[in-house]
């Protein structure tokens, strides 16, 4: 019985139900990482302090979830959730700063570009912090679905 359980947890099964949502979470992290690198390295927009903290949470997700996908290992969800949760919190805070809900004076932006700057927009319409929040939200939902499916498979 315990053998079966271990197999389900590691998820060696070909038709592991959690794989697709895990893939979705990984794809979101991959696109967000590529986008952040493009904005920073190619378009030359210097990331503000809050952007850096979100990057710190986002970039490892690509590797953690990537390895999880490669070995069909559902435990990667467990390792990814704290990263995604922290990243989501910072992104939410950043959006509040950007919209002026939280006072600019409270923002830890001593050096570098301002986190509340109007410049942090994509194509002049969508603010970058909102994109980040959307990505982290999507990743959290996908991870949650992956975990729920894996649990159901174990029962």
């Amino acid at each position: 019985m315990s053998e079966h359980r271990a197999a389900a947890e590691v998820g060696k099964g070909r038709n592991a139900a959690f794989w697709l949502p895990l893939f979705a979470a990984w794809l979101l992290a991959l696109l967000a990482t590529a986008g952040a690198l493009f904005l920073g390295e190619v378009m030359g927009k210097t990331p503000c302090v809050l952007c850096w903290y979100q990057r710190i949470a986002m970039f490892p997700l690509v590797l953690v979830l990537g390895v999880g996908l490669f070995t069909s290992d559902v435990r990667s969800v467990r390792y990814a959730l704290p990263l995604a949760g922290v990243g989501w919190s910072i992104a939410a805070y950043h959006v509040l700063v950007y919209w002026g809900v939280v006072s600019k004076d409270l923002v830890p932006c001593g050096k570098g570009p301002s986190c509340a700057d109007a410049d942090v927009q994509m194509a002049g319409v969508v603010p970058i912090p909102l994109l980040s929040l959307a990505a982290f939200t999507g990743i959290l939902v996908a991870l949650w679905v992956a975990r729920a499916r894996a649990r159901r498979a174990m029962e």
Binding site: W19, F23, W26, L27, L30, L31, A34, G66, L69, F70, S72
Partner: peptide, 14 residues
């Protein structure tokens, strides 16, 4: 098959 999906997606994004 799934490994190829992961690799292919990563390659496409790159």
């Amino acid at each position: 098959n799934r490994k190829w999906i992961v690799l292919g997606t990563a390659l496409a994004v790159v």
